[in-house]
Design a protein around this nucleic acid. Structure first.
Lengths: 288, 288
DNA sequence: CAGTGGTCTAGACCACCAA
DNA sequence: TGGTGGTCTAGACCACTGC
């Protein structure tokens, strides 16, 4: 009898992901979900093109809750046991889903305390996406970076900016220019573009007033969380204006770093073009 | 009775990793390892400084077998069940150990076939450590890279080379210079240094004769497997000799990529200094 | 002390592959 | 058909945190 129950449960669960249904099939359903309808289980059992494991579906559901803002950055999400009960799966399955989200830096596990929504603020590694390190000494020996906002204006998206941000050409974007200095030496000159729709009301004053990483400001003030980024790196020679802003002579080669940052669902939300001095610093990359 | 057995087994196992003993404690031991000695289990149970989970110990054991060459590159390692029996742990514990090794690209899992030792050869991604991509089109549209060995000689390690390779200054190293061309355009100029002890008998002729990634040659001919690498990237202006080898004019800024590649145990085994053209290609990096 | 994540086990069943 | 890795479950116990 107990064995029959077990098999029935397994069958029900497996059917849920064999059919690859949307969230309704496993989320928030009340009761142990018995046979329901005499659907074509036999037809499904042979050759299912898109097979999605249960834990992947759980991962998607958690992702949706994150995106919907159900749990705010730096807040704790429900415990594994709670989520298991909510999704009607075992703790181990929730665990595997959270494992992957933690590996992608979307969640942070803290033993004995809980699982928390990752954030760009209060992260002991201040600049999560910055790969520039000083030639000598630690990162901290230079002290905190000095930020200087040069400009922040509303412009129309050019063709390449629009393409990178997945918007239409001519749509409003915010363009920011700033200089980052380490140990009082101007080291990074950055131009960045943000889609106007999501960043209404962003001004140079607000940028100057905020003390902390810009991505943290995006989270707290605009509810936009950058999840991952891609960079294209080149070596270039600066023009005169760029030289002046970085107080260098024109013969110095600079690193050109073009970064596209993405929120959930791989939606691009920022294009950033940086020029890095690499005579006193270097760009570090780990290959695995 | 059965319950008592279970607890005894758990206790024995847990003691093994609480005491953090070397491999003898869990590997290859015959029989279910009963109480043995009345060791200070109670003293251990409170405040253990270095606690290492069982699966981490299994991981270390597998790593040692890999390093010792028990399983050759591209060969299959024993199945999870076999390893579980060998190490006297459950399949799930072996599984977690292999999961981490696969995440580090040391092993490759293939469902239905087995788990295999990763290799730089026959990997569908040819250049595992190369992050340079053409501006337009795919990576394959340019066809295979043309390799031109300029030089291969035996020299004494300078101070910086010795430091990077963790050897003494003045020890013998092999110095190789080569040019990589894509679509018949010289794109990468590389100088690389290898510790002489591990690469006896490497000559320009052998390098020219081998068709495939250099790291694959290191594996098959010298038994040296590069496991990970670190790169320091800068923008530089080339000197005249470098310009000539890359057939560019001297005003072109180039990407300087200094790579240190490591074998097992984080032992550095190669220092490579590359100059990349970035007017037709770009260096891609993913930030997570 | 209770609650959280972390480890370990045992067993069942599935998807994939090769012979 | 048998063997491999992949998924899922249930339950036990451990380590860590904070009240």
């Amino acid at each position: 009898m107990a064995e029959t129950d077990l098999k029935l449960t397994l069958h029900t669960v497996l059917r849920a992901h064999l059919m690859n249904t949307e969230s309704t099939s496993i989320s928030e359903s009340t009761g142990p979900a018995s046979t329901e309808t005499g659907s074509s289980a036999s037809a499904v059992s042979s050759s299912t093109p898109a097979f999605s494991p249960l834990y992947q579906q759980i991962k998607t559901l958690i992702l949706q809750s994150l995106q919907a803002g159900e749990w705010k950055p730096s807040a704790a999400i429900p415990s594994e046991m709670d989520l298991a009960a909510r999704f009607k799966v075992s703790q181990g399955t929730v665990r595997k889903a959270i494992d992957e989200l933690a590996a992608e830096n979307l969640l942070v596990r803290r033993q004995g305390k809980g699982t928390f929504v990752a954030t760009h603020a209060e992260q002991h590694v201040q600049y999560r996406f910055l790969r520039l390190y000083p030639d000598s000494g630690d990162l901290q020996s230079e002290g905190p970076a000095q930020r200087q906002i040069i400009d922040c204006k509303r412009v129309r998206a050019s063709a390449d900016i629009a393409k990178a941000l997945a918007i239409r050409q001519g749509e409003a974007v915010l363009q920011v220019r700033r200089v980052l200095s380490f140990a009082s030496t101007p080291t990074i000159l950055e131009d960045l573009w943000l889609p106007g729709a999501q960043f209404k009301g962003l001004t140079a004053e607000r940028l100057r007033a905020y003390h902390g990483p810009m991505y943290a400001l995006f989270e707290t003030e605009f509810g936009v969380r950058m999840v991952r980024a891609e960079e294209k790196i080149r070596a270039v020679l600066p023009d005169e204006e760029q030289c002046a802003l970085l107080t260098i002579k024109s013969k110095t080669a600079l690193l050109s770093v073009e970064r596209t940052a993405f929120t959930y669902n791989d939606a691009p939300m920022e294009l950033r073009r940086g020029l890095y001095r690499t005579d006193t610093h270097y760009y570090r990359n780990a290959l695995n």
